[in-house]
Amino acid sequence: MMIFVLRRCGTMVLTMLVVSLLLFLLLEISPGNVATKVLGPYSSEEQRNLWLEAHGYFDPIYERYFRWLGNFVIGDFGDSIRFKVPVGEVLWPRLANTGILALATLGVVVPVSLILGVLAGMREGSTLDRTISVSSIVTTSVPEFASAVLLSAVFVFLLDILPGTSGMSEGFDLKQLILPVMVLAVYDFGYVTRMTRASMAEVMLTHYIRTAVLKGLPYKTVIARHALRNALITPFTVIMLQINWLLSGVIVVEYYFAYKGFGALLLEASLNSDIFVIEACAMVAVFVAVATQTIADVGYTYLNPRIRFS
């Protein structure tokens, strides 16, 4: 078990290294571009060369990579071209905002989809199951930007009970969080629900559930003690991996609602070629994704006695 955890962590570090190398190659391979981006298209050749000289861009590429990586590890991501401040200063508050958004979304998605999934999977083929399954297909078919439009049309335009943007310019406002969370949750819950349902339905067909019923256990005990324990292993993994998807979703939602989060920052940076911000954002996103993946793997192993004790 210990070895397994260590090995997973090793893989995680390795993945991060490869990702950093990819990013470095993609964005910084040609110093000329970097300088153009930093100094703007109207800078002179001379200015650019001076800047490159000053920032060590004429050193061999591997030296540059390692220096860049070293800076990254200690949290020095360079300066934002647009905001003219160290990237960290922009990034951390944005990340915190996105964290709030993501947590709130998970807070809705996890209970709702687990409950619906278990209910649907418990009696496969029942009307309840069909209803839940089809509605989860329908909601996952509506892209976030579309549901953002639809939901704001209803809640902002028709009913006028919720604000249409979530800039939070006057401090934190719970009301402004509702629509973004709703949009993310509507899109995400369907997948988790369906995976939970599939897992539950599969467990309900296993022979050990039959054994439990034929032992004469009450139905509730069969579900609570025998089925859930096994059926919830898969959804756990799915939820952890869902965080990766959520990071995609926040880009759209934050952009739409002008929410000052990490996704919007990445998008702005990309549109404005703010390369040091892009690099930092990408690394952070990948880190979150890889870390949750690792937790998912380790958790899966832990929850599964067949693997845990072998």
């Binding site: 993945t15 990702v19 990013l23 993609l26 990766n244 998807w245 990071l247 995609s248 979703g249 880009i251 759209v252 990445l266 998008l267 990309s270 549109l271 070629s273 892009i278 954002c281 990408a282 996103a285 990948v286 994704a289 890889v290 993946q293």
Partner: peptide, 13 residues
């Protein structure tokens, strides 16, 4: 391990 959209945004950008 890249969130999909992050990947798209970076590539397209």
């Amino acid at each position: 391990s890249f969130p999909v959209l992050v990947l798209y945004v970076i590539i397209i950008a």
